[in-house]
Design a protein around this nucleic acid. Structure first.
Lengths: 348, 348
DNA sequence: ATGAAAGCGCTAACAT
DNA sequence: ATGTTAGCGCTTTCAT
């Protein structure tokens, strides 16, 4: 591509390419989209002209004319959570083999912000929507229902989706972990979590957790919540505070691996016998933490798989509108006991 | 908003709102955009009708007609890097006070992918482009130059930008750290980094580092590179391998805080005297790590500030096209010695 | 304060 | 294999 003496401020149009190549706009359009029959010769001339001029098609006009937009709206609470980049990776893996492209919107766990972001994204008429969680404002649900494109609600399956859903049951995840903990004989259990009332998944895990404990006749012995700051540091501080307040605890359940790791480091430093005297578990297997001195017990939330499955649904339904909606893909998270849950290990 | 008995598959248009409210399309458009004079009465009727129908404007048509798109293309190598979400936060902070909206594209550190993503995004005619790094393919540079909108290249300032640039000099960052290390009397220095030949910023830091060491008559005594896997675990493994191979090293410089933290944990576990016998330093202050038993020496790369400054430039220039381009904002990263760089601490 | 007409840059549908 | 025509849904501009 050569730069002409003075670059035009006006963006180039099909017409420019048409004139430069001596071919009709329509044919240029066909070449640029690999559509319909075009002779080798004209194709070459058009491509040469487009390249020479540095033409970049105007998708806005294209989308308006064709009523098709190859964008998939992905709406998530945060990018710094580690969890969501992984979901994005799964989505991208699948969409990379299609003409579709993800576009991310971040809500910061705020329902009104979610509503705004959704409205904004729907106004671009995307081919599909992937949105985290099942809890939305009334207007947001209405918009999703009226969008006229596939909608996949991800991460959580404890509730009724507008259309399709892919995720895990966080209530069940909490229950399973509670059962595993009780099965190991722990009885004096503390809970440490985020203070975010709007993190519904964390809330549901907690509910499932206490529910299963209750069934075993156990009650949470102490609890503490945090917000803001470095999760690792917070985990450390909270653990110290809780153990000072309630020294007879024999298990700490953390609502995520980062604060759990902070707690683990604290315990190791203090020479506390883990998991002999004190068991620990987190949630959301964070690969990043694999280099810790000891592996924290945790549960994999299947993030990559959730992203892939959601994208699959959008891709399939958007290429074949005959496919009905309402898919339910409930994945099963499994406990990874790491080194901090099982008191007795199998003898070698 | 009420849901009509059978929801229409066809998306609603201005015309629908116009008919429902008995007002011309033009006036509806004015109301919905808060433009021009509209009487209180008609405004209310229009808003009521739009809400009742659940009308979502079509930005594609709007953008085509007005030749204005309130999107800012943000092109970054990765979302899992921790660094980039922080840059995004800075960008959002500033754009939230404007009509502009960021749209993210991810390149996975691949030049061709970057070219594709850029082409794709430019075809939506964004109001500005924020792109990581100064190294791009020839076509990518040409596209940026011809885009006709503000372009800000961020993170790195060692090179010539197409238009504006905001970032730090990674070469200088490497030099500064080398000087600080030598000043502490360390002489047998090992380097541990990513094996990514396309991470130009890591490469420049390394070059600056070796250059400043050379000036002090010191040469890198050992080096090791990794790719893939958990950074913490890799840092641990690499550190072990290097110390076994070259036991007389007295300093380890890591190309990022995550692998540095892995190394730090390893050293503490082995009872190595840090920083007495072995000093450590990373790069890119990661808040997430604040809860480690000891604070790793590092350097803040000013990510939040870079995002904010870049967004500022786009916002300003896009609201006032008279403002000329070519801004250069070179921020100064500072060394945070943490607990692993200074051998002698000030006595209390 | 409101409306009518023209057209943004492209593509669907129909010629040829 | 290529060209022509008529919009896509909105906003700009110019009337009233």
């Amino acid at each position: 591509m050569t730069t002409s003496p003075d670059a035009p401020r006006r963006p180039l149009t099909l017409k420019d390419v048409s004139e430069a190549s001596g071919v009709s706009e329509m044919t240029v359009s066909r070449v640029l989209r690999n559509r319909g029959d075009v002779s080798e010769a004209t194709r070459d001339r058009v491509i040469a002209a487009a390249k020479e001029l540095g033409y970049v098609p105007n998708k806005i006009a294209g989308a308006l004319a064709s009523q098709r937009v190859n964008l998939v709206a992905v709406i998530i609470p945060s990018l710094s959570n580690l969890v969501f980049p992984e979901v994005m990776t799964g989505i991208s893996q699948v969409l990379d083999d299609t003409p579709l492209q993800p576009v991310v919107g971040v809500t910061q766990y705020k329902p009104e912000k979610e509503e705004d972001v959704l409205y904004e994204m729907l106004s671009w008429r995307p081919s599909g929507v992937i949105i985290a969680g099942l809890e939305h404002t009334e207007p947001a649900r209405a918009m999703l229902a009226a969008a006229g494109v596939p909608v996949v609600e991800i991460m959580d399956t404890d509730g009724e989706p507008v259309d399709a859903m892919v995720g895990i049951s966080h209530r069940r995840a909490g229950r399973e972990m509670a059962k595993a903990i009780v099965a190991q004989g722990y009885r004096r259990i503390g809970f440490l979590g985020t203070g975010m009332p709007l993190d519904h998944r964390a809330r549901k895990r907690f509910e499932g957790f206490t529910e299963a404990l209750a069934k075993a006749g156990v009650e949470i012995a102490d609890r503490e919540f945090y917000s803001g700051g470095s999760a690792l540091a917070k985990g450390r501080e909270m653990t110290e505070a809780m153990l000072n307040r309630t020294p007879d605890l024999d298990f700490l359940y953390y609502s995520n691996d980062m604060i759990g790791a902070g707690g683990l480091l604290y315990c190791l430093e203090k020479g506390i016998d883990v998991p002999g005297k004190l068991g620990l578990a987190g949630f959301n297997r964070v690969e990043l933490l694999d280099g810790l001195p000891r592996r924290l017990a945790t549960m994999d939330a299947c993030r990559l798989e959730i992203g892939r499955a959601a994208a699959r649904i959008i891709a399939d339904r958007s290429s074949d509108p005959e496919i009905p909606g309402g898919q339910r893909d409930i994945l099963t998270p499994t406990i990874d006991p790491g080194d901090t849950l099982y008191r007795s290990r199998p003898r070698v």
